[in-house]
Amino acid sequence: MVRSMFRFLFRRIALIVPTFIGVTFMAFLLIHLVPGDPIEARVGERGIAPERLAELRHEFGYDLPMWQQFFKYEVQIVKGDLGMSVVTQQSVWHEFITLFPATVELSIAAILFAMLIGLPMGVIAAVRRGSAFDYGLMGMSVTGASMPIFWWGLMMILIFSVTLGITPVSGRISDAFFVEPWSGFMLIDCYWSEDEGACSSAWSHMILPMIVLGTIPLAIIARMTRSSMLEVLNEDYVRTARAKGLSTPRVVIVHALRNALIPVVTVIGLSVSGLLGGAILTETIFSWPGVGHWLVESIARRDYPVLQGGSLLIAVLVIMVNLGVDLLYGFLNPRIRR
């Protein structure tokens, strides 16, 4: 069993290598397709003497043939060097890793919010198929999936922050508090600091972005859970479970939901990519100091190394998550765990 697990893992990783090379190639192309010379972009608008330009071009290897440059870039990436921000002169990796926990925290909160509400709602809708609850949930689900979340976020601010004044508009925590950034996850750090004011401030900052970012996953999860449950509830083994004299909750949760979760988990895993896309918008609206906000700002500042390195890291992250989902799928579904 363990050996077959390893073989499965190995095969999956082997499949990733070409994707990874493709992704780095895309990132490489980004810099080379952007109008203007990268060196000129780097020195900014002050201008530069032609001799010095040629010198720098040689120094950075921009006079080499494309394939050699790509090879150099590839080596650089594998070494972990993602370049420097033109604006801050900080390494892209360093900036990314400082901002990344904020994005992860927001994304995890959003997906937990979506699962916590979406899974039970989908199950109830399936069990009460055709009821008013079912129709209501399906209507809300298709509306949620159609939601322009950048506008949804603005409306939430308009209602809860501006009109009702119960939630803050931006950031992760009120300026009144300072919490030692121990894990980088604000909620955890606040919890450890045992400062109740900081905790409630962090939560009140989290709640709106979490709902906004979780809306589309919530819609997808509720819908997927429902349809998956409907399918599973018709299976012979559910009838067997009922023929054993099990109670309805036990039949639904232990026998049906366990099987229905297999495709749902896959969908949740695959929605990580969309979630990170949504994080770009959510972070922009709520001035959430995360990777998405950073990337949008990098465009305005024409900070192309940041855009390049950041996109690459996010793509790699998506690849890793997809791999994780595959492994989890194998774990959940005994049939493919040969």
Binding site: S273, G274, L276, G277, I280, I314, N322
Partner: peptide, 9 residues
Amino acid sequence: VLLVFPSLL
């Protein structure tokens, strides 16, 4: 390769 980038990104 196109799919591993979040579509908005």
